[in-house]
């Protein structure tokens, strides 16, 4: 089963996604695909908070910030996966070392690889971020990022069994049969 979860920031997406991935696993292997590549102390603090948050839930952490399909060889595909988040993965793919210039192919690459990843495993919960409804006029780099993430979201939503939006901890079902 593929579950896609999005919504505004700080609405409880990550904690809900963790509980859901545990539920879907029914005692099988649980993997947390950690996509964030930390660049500063704030990132490292956030990662520590997330690790503490999922302590005791039985997740094996697989660090994979780019080329998401490469980590499939280290896991049991019949397990349950939590990928948090498409947003972080896109950021890493969009700005590639060594010069971190903008990679215009990143959106399509991420979408293609995430769809393949999701369809290769038994259960997966993918978390993204809804960043499309403000009255701001952004620079072209930011618009490229928003356009690419929206493309990934739509491609994932199309192949997902269940699409959920979280709003203040409440669940809005956009696709599929889901009983909270």
């Amino acid at each position: 089963m593929i579950v896609f979860i999005t919504g505004g920031a700080k609405n409880g997406k990550s904690s809900f996604a963790q509980r859901l991935a545990v539920e879907l696993s029914r005692g099988g292997n649980r993997y947390y695909i950690a996509t964030m590549i930390p660049v500063d102390e704030e990132d490292r603090e956030r990662i520590r908070r997330h690790i503490a948050d999922r302590a005791g839930l039985g997740f094996q952490t697989v660090e994979c910030g780019r080329d998401i399909l490469t980590c499939l060889s280290q896991v049991d595909k019949s397990g349950s996966f939590l990928l948090d988040s498409a947003t972080a993965l896109l950021m890493n793919e969009l700005f590639l070392p060594p010069d971190y210039s903008l990679n215009p192919e990143a959106g399509e690459k991420c979408a293609r690889e995430l769809v393949e990843f999701a369809q290769s495993v038994e259960n997966i919960v993918v978390v993204s971020d809804y960043i499309y409804s403000d009255a701001a006029i952004y620079d072209e780099v930011t618009e490229t990022y928003r356009r690419a993430l929206a493309f990934i979201d739509q491609q994932l939503a199309a192949v997902s069994d269940v699409v959920l939006e979280l709003s203040a901890g409440n669940i809005i079902v956009h696709k599929g049969d889901f009983q909270p």
Partner: peptide, 8 residues
Amino acid sequence: IGGAYQGK
């Protein structure tokens, strides 16, 4: 209606 790039 819908946010930017949502497929409206």
